Computed example of a mutant assay.
Amino acid sequence: MKYDKVLLAHGSGGKLSHDLVREVFLPAFGNKALNRLDDRAEVSVPGTRLAFSTDSFVVNPIFFAGGDIGKLAVCGTVNDLAMGGAQPLYLSVGFIIEEGLEMDILKKIVASMQAAAREAGVDIVTGDTKVVEKGSADKLFINTAGIGIVEEGIHISGHNAKPGDKVIINGFIGDHGMAVMAERQGLSFQSRIASDCAPLNKLVAKMLEVTKDIRVLRDPTRGGVATTLNEIAGQSSVGIVLHEKELPIRDEVMAACEFLGFDPLYVANEGKLLAIVPAEKAEDILAVMQGEKYGENAAIIGEVVSDHPGKVVLKTAVGGRRIVDMLVGEQLPRIC
């Protein structure tokens, strides 16, 4: 590898994260399920297709407008399962707690996790707790894993995008990253920015009622919309064109990004999904999404093309074009 030590940027979800996976983990662990590099693995047991995912959460601070590390942990794993079209069923949770954490804080986090699990319709059925010496962690880290069932006829993967498909997002971009950043830096804006953290499995189920022929679902967390679409373009060997005028971004988030020097396309989201769907089904899927709580502001933001395979291009509001590359480096560390 180019680096002899692990950097914060290796956890960014961007190019260095992908290098770490491909150069360290895949050579050691590679197999048919893992090599697809989707949000979750799909495995088969007799008579059943299972989706299986795991994630760890180290967000700083652990409380922020719109959520906390507990809600984030449940929603993050539920959403990874849902991005395969799975019905999430069961979660595990592992706590790594720094000595000295107030018990009332831990209870508040646990209650938040239970509320999020109840909303998603999943049960937390197993777990583990470790306590480390003060200074060996930052208050609290959480790992969650989840399993769900994938119905026959559903085959969703980052490898499935085809020229002519439409790209849909279920709402505003960049809310989570800016909410965490504002809390972290003690910033206040005229309008309150809150995280979009939410479970999306019921929204996905409604979308699948329109058609099971959804090509790709992906939640644009670390690295944001830009990095996620670059992943898909690479996996499917297609190009993707975005339309700047169609991107749903709150004025206050755009203002915060401009103030801090960020591009909202690279800012993390925790209650958003990107759907790549056949063009002839796009309007029907969009209509269903807009009728749901977590899809009210859904929009078609681009399309898949055969040109420039592996690359994402933005058509700007003034009529120009620019390449939107994968995130390089670390824009917002410890965002989830």
Rank of each mutant, 00 (worst) to 15 (best):
P309A: 01
T228A: 15
G13Y: 03
L274N: 10
Y90I: 11
N160I: 02
V21G: 00
R250Y: 09
I193Q: 08
R322C: 07
E270F: 11
I149P: 01
R250K: 14
G70K: 04
E252H: 06
A51Y: 02
L140A: 07
D55W: 08
G70C: 08
V21K: 14
F57H: 14
M178H: 09
G329H: 10
N60R: 14
A33D: 10
D4H: 13
E246L: 12
N170I: 05
I124K: 03
A282N: 10
S191E: 15
V253F: 03
K166D: 09
G186E: 08
H176C: 07
D80N: 14
G310K: 02
V45Y: 10
G174C: 01
P46R: 14
Q235F: 12
M289V: 03
L72S: 07
K293E: 15
R118E: 15
R215N: 12
T144Y: 02
I109P: 07
D251P: 03
G94A: 15
R250A: 14
T129C: 09
G271S: 04
E102G: 08
P333S: 07
V132M: 03
D213V: 00
D213N: 15
I154S: 05
P27E: 04
I249W: 04
R222E: 14
R184A: 06
D219Q: 13
A51G: 15
D123H: 12
D251M: 09
I69M: 05
G84I: 00
G84W: 00
K206Y: 05
M254D: 12
A279Y: 09
F95P: 01
G76W: 06
E296F: 07
A9M: 06
G85I: 02
V180S: 00
P163G: 08
A51Q: 04
E119W: 02
S195C: 10
D284P: 04
A82F: 01
G127I: 06
P278L: 08
I154F: 02
V277T: 11
L187M: 15
R218A: 14
V318M: 13
G121I: 00
D104H: 11
P46Y: 13
G30K: 10
E280P: 02
K245C: 00
I97F: 08
E231V: 09
D19K: 14
E42R: 12
G319I: 05
L20M: 13
A256H: 07
G271C: 02
C257P: 02
I124W: 01
H155L: 13
M103N: 12
N143S: 15
V167E: 03
D104W: 10
A117T: 09
S56A: 15
A120T: 04
G76V: 09
V204L: 05
A73Y: 03
D284F: 05
Q235Y: 12
G85R: 04
D325T: 14
L8G: 09
G153E: 06
H159Q: 14
D4I: 12
P264M: 06
A33R: 07
I285P: 11
V131F: 08
V59A: 03
G302P: 08
I69N: 02
L203K: 00
P199K: 04
I300Q: 05
N170Q: 04
V324F: 06
